[in-house]
C-alpha cells in the first residue's frame, strides 16, 4: 500500500430500498486533494461516513490511515477530521467555546491549546468574531468555524462533505484558498462537492453517479475523455436552435448552459459552417460561434449521459 492513506475494496452500503454505494474501489495517496464529485443522491455522504468509521459497510472494506474502519474505528478517529454537510456545531455556544469544547474532547494539551486555538482563529479569519455565538455567524463563517474545529487535533486526513454548499461565491473562493493552504502543509483532503468548477482545484477527482464511480483521474485527463470537439455558441431561441443542431450530421451531443449551447462534434472545422448555415436557414440569429476547450462540467454531463444511454 505504501503511500495510500485511504483504500476501499468493493465498499458497498445498502439501505432498505436503495444501494447507496455500490462496490467502490478507491485509493488515495498521502497529500492529495481528492474530489468526490456527483449530483445529489450519488452516494457521496454515505461514502464519507463509512470512511470516517461512523457507518458500517454492508459489504467490502475500507482502510483509512492504515486502520480498518470496522475493526479499528477509534484509531482512525484520532487521525482524521470530519466536517459534515450540515452545520453541526453548537449554535448557542460562542466561536471560542466551540473550539475549546473540541480541543477538550480531543484532549489537546493545555499549554498547546491556547496557541493552537489562536492560530486556527487567525487561519479561519475568525479572530474578531470569537465571542459571537455560532448561530449568529454567516453561512461562510460557520463553515470556516466548522473547519477550524475539525483541525484542532492536527488530523492527517480531513473529510469534507460538500463544504461549500450554500455558501456565497466570495466565501467559497476563500474557503478553497484555506483548503489549498492545508494541502500545501501536507494534509490529505477528501472533499465531496456537487460543484464541477471546484473539481479543477483537486489533484484527482472521482465522478460518482448512483452509487458507483464512473471515472477517477486527474482533472485534465477527465476533460480529455470527452469525445469530439466542442463548439460554443449563443443563439436566439435556445430550444429550437438545440433541436435544429441536434439533427445535423456529425453532432454528437448538445448541452445547454444558460443562454449558451455547447455542441460536441466530430470535427469542429467541418461542422461549424454547417451549423451556422442550418440556423440561418431556420431564421435563428447566432452570436459568437467558436471552438472551445471542454470544461469539467461538459465532461461529466457527457459521461453521465453516456452511462444512462448504456443502460437503455
Amino acid at each position: 500500500m505504501g503511500n495510500d492513506v485511504i483504500e476501499t475494496h468493493n465498499l458497498t452500503k445498502r439501505f432498505k430500498h436503495v444501494t447507496a454505494v455500490d462496490g467502490l474501489n478507491l485509493s488515495i495517496r498521502r497529500g492529495e486533494i481528492f474530489g468526490l464529485l456527483g449530483p445529489d443522491g450519488a452516494g457521496k455522504t454515505t461514502t464519507i461516513r463509512m470512511l470516517c468509521a461512523i457507518m458500517d459497510p454492508s459489504e467490502g472494506s475500507a482502510r483509512v490511515a492504515g486502520f480498518d474502519t470496522v475493526r479499528e474505528p477509534e484509531e482512525i478517529k484520532k487521525r482524521i477530521g470530519y466536517m459534515p454537510q450540515q452545520f453541526s456545531l453548537y449554535g448557542d455556544l460562542t466561536v471560542l467555546e466551540n473550539l475549546t469544547f473540541f480541543a477538550d474532547v480531543f484532549q489537546v494539551e493545555r499549554q498547546e491549546r491556547e496557541e493552537r486555538i489562536a492560530r486556527l482563529l487567525d487561519f479561519a479569519r475568525l479572530t474578531e468574531f470569537q465571542k459571537r455565538r455560532a448561530a449568529h455567524l454567516s453561512g461562510g463563517m460557520q463553515k470556516k468555524l466548522a473547519l477550524a474545529c475539525t483541525l484542532i487535533h492536527r488530523p492527517e486526513i480531513i473529510f469534507l462533505d460538500e463544504p461549500t454548499t450554500g455558501v456565497d461565491p466570495v466565501s467559497r473562493r476563500e474557503f478553497w484558498d484555506i483548503l489549498t493552504e492545508l494541502h500545501v502543509q501536507g494534509v490529505t483532503l477528501f472533499v465531496s462537492t456537487p460543484y464541477m468548477d471546484e473539481a479543477e482545484r483537486c489533484s484527482r477527482v472521482a465522478l460518482m453517479f448512483e452509487g458507483s464511480v464512473i471515472v477517477c483521474d486527474v482533472p485534465e485527463r477527465i476533460k480529455g475523455l470527452v469525445e469530439g470537439e466542442l463548439l460554443e455558441l449563443r443563439p436566439e431561441r435556445l430550444r429550437e436552435a438545440s433541436r435544429v443542431i441536434g439533427e445535423l450530421p456529425g453532432v454528437l451531443e448538445v448541452q445547454t448552459y444558460g443562454d449558451l449551447l455547447h455542441v460536441f462534434v466530430d470535427d469542429a472545422a467541418r461542422r461549424a459552417p454547417a451549423i451556422q448555415e442550418a440556423l440561418a436557414g431556420a431564421g435563428i440569429a447566432v452570436q459568437g460561434l467558436r471552438q472551445t476547450r471542454p470544461r469539467m462540467e461538459d465532461a461529466f454531463i457527457s459521461l453521465i449521459r453516456k452511462r444512462l444511454g448504456e443502460r437503455e
Binding site: 461512523i54 459534515p84 474532547v105
Partner: peptide, 13 residues
Amino acid sequence: EQGTIEQLMVTPI
C-alpha cells in the same frame, strides 16, 4: 436532530 452527534461520533469520546 441538530446533527452535532455526527461530529461527536468522529471524536475519541
